[in-house]
Amino acid sequence: MDEKKPLSFIEKMKLKAQSQKSYGIDESFAFKEAKLDAENCPNCGAGRAKQDGLTHCGYCGHEFIAITLTDGLFLKKEDNSQH
């Protein structure tokens, strides 16, 4: 019986564990820094202002999102555009 069996066994298992891909996880994209972004209307280029609501462009009426917002966590009913 090899005296070092469990030790070399562990080494092999560790290599196996480390060399494998994890389902659904791309480690190279795993850590993202916090960021702030703003999106202009892809249709008319206008900026998006709070009072115009989030669902449609305040200038050209372009639909940003197709659903109607309800009272969620940070998004509220009032965030729907009044178009």
């Binding site: 960021k35 702030l36 202002a49």
Partner: peptide
């Protein structure tokens, strides 16, 4: 300027 920014 009232622009909506998105914080991620």
């Amino acid at each position: 300027c009232q622009t909506q920014n998105t914080f991620e």
